[in-house]
Simulated scan of single mutants.
Amino acid sequence: MHFSVLASGSTGNAIYVESGEHAFLVDAGLSGKQMETLFQGIDRKMDKLSGIFVTHEHSDHIKGVGIIARKYNLPIYANEKTWKAMEPLIGTIPVEQKFQFDMETVKTFGDVSIESFGVSHDAAEPMFYVFHQGEKKLVLITDTGYVSDRMKGIIRNADSYVFESNHDVQMLRMGRYPWNIKRRILSDVGHVSNEDAAIAMSEVIGDRTKHIYLAHLSMDNNIKDLARMSVSQTLEQRGVDLTDQLGLYDTDPKKPTNLMAI
């Protein structure tokens, strides 16, 4: 498998995953034109995609879903509640392109199996995905207020993680957001902080884990260097040795990460 975090942040999210037989897009929270540019950045084309997997209906995850699916005749996969919440926002989708992917189930596409699991976020029925190819395992988990023991069991000991590290708590508390927004972000259905993300990481990464991508950083309440420093310090305090074999990587709201092989 190869993957790239095409864009990550409150302005739009999209992740590309490919295997030997298929190529997938998880969310498309940017315009069709922006998505085309992001694909050019990794030397890939959207007409080679096998489908789009939706995590939840918030606009920073579905802005381009409808236009891309219609243009390239792509199937869209989402659970029933997400479909109901999303349909008024993405325009008409032909029935033959609409597929239901229930939470905590597995779908197999050739050489890849995709496992869905629920997260805690203020959406209809938010869920993220684990990609399995043989013994290889890629976990995508953002947009959750906390990481439960159930989630940890599903995502444990992956080769690579795209893991939410949304905010620095002090920056958020002291920042310009109104209190109701701060309270929502800090809640169990909001977003995980740098420190909470690192604590969860320390409990799930295993001997095969090689890559951790820090994702969905707040533009107002976080900084890449701060997120990396906070996460690395917390991991090291909890006995995780960050070496050349286990690396932390940045993501960006406007440019894709290099294609990473698992």
Rank of each mutant, 00 (worst) to 15 (best):
S193N: 07
F131W: 12
E135Y: 12
M229A: 15
E195I: 15
A85P: 01
F39Y: 08
T257S: 10
E104C: 14
D241W: 13
A197T: 08
Q34G: 05
E195N: 11
F99G: 09
D102T: 03
T105L: 14
E36H: 08
L74I: 03
P178I: 11
A14I: 05
M127H: 01
L246A: 13
L242E: 02
L25K: 03
R70M: 05
R208W: 01
E115L: 15
D168E: 14
D60M: 10
G20Q: 09
D220F: 14
E57G: 02
R44P: 01
G66D: 04
S165M: 08
I67G: 09
K84P: 00
K210S: 15
Q133N: 15
I141A: 12
I15P: 00
S187M: 01
Q97P: 01
H61S: 02
K107F: 09
H58T: 09
P178V: 08
L49S: 10
Y77H: 05
E96N: 15
I154Q: 07
V26L: 09
E18I: 10
G12L: 10
V204G: 01
G32Y: 08
N73H: 15
P88S: 07
R150S: 12
E87W: 03
A158D: 00
S218W: 02
L248V: 06
D43V: 02
G41A: 10
E236V: 03
G41Q: 13
D159W: 06
V147K: 09
P94L: 10
R173F: 12
S113Q: 14
L138W: 04
R183N: 13
V169H: 10
A28T: 11
K255Q: 14
A158L: 03
D244E: 13
P253Q: 08
N13K: 09
F109A: 08
V17W: 10
F53T: 07
E18A: 12
D168A: 13
M1E: 06
F99I: 15
D27G: 01
G118V: 08
D60L: 07
G118A: 15
T243P: 04
S113H: 11
H121G: 02
S165T: 15
V26Y: 03
S8R: 06
R173Y: 14
Q237H: 06
D102R: 10
E195W: 11
D244N: 12
A123P: 02
M174W: 09
L226H: 10
D196E: 14
D143F: 04
F131S: 10
M35Y: 12
E18T: 05
H167W: 01
W83N: 00
D220S: 14
N258W: 11
H132A: 07
S165C: 12
T257Q: 03
Q100V: 15
D220C: 10
G29Y: 08
H191V: 03
Q34T: 05
S187G: 08
S120N: 13
F53I: 13
G9T: 06
V17L: 09
L38E: 06
A14Q: 01
